[in-house]
Amino acid sequence: MNTVLWVILWGAVFTYAARVGGHLVLSRFHNIHPRVEAGLNAVPAAVLTTLVAPAAIQAGPVELIALVVAGFASLRFGMMTMFLIGAAVLVGLRQVVG
């Protein structure tokens, strides 16, 4: 088998293991400890933040403005509107600044 296929298939196996594994481990416990529960409740914000923060630190002024505007937009609007506003600011400013 060539290396590309080998990497893809093992990558897929490990990814599925991660997606099914958390449940298989946690479902063994009948009562979830409140601290585990509190930790689980924090998972989405914590993980998603790590996908934003390093990108924001490295971003140029145009990207940062788009991100901040989108952040404020999300206080008022839904996901889709917020995303479109952020994308519009980004594309618009890049046409001007380059």
């Binding site: 924090a42 914000a45 993980v47 998603l48 933040t49 989108a70 999300s74 952020g86 980004l90």
Partner: peptide, 30 residues
């Protein structure tokens, strides 16, 4: 740069959770 904007939207969606701000700040810095 569309992906970070999208992920930021998801982060903001969870701002009603307990301790959202300290969690986000800690994860961002770490």
């Amino acid at each position: 740069f569309l992906l970070p904007i999208y992920f930021l939207g998801l982060v903001m969606d969870f701002r009603d959770r307990p301790f959202w701000l300290p969690v986000v700040a800690t994860s961002a810095i770490a």
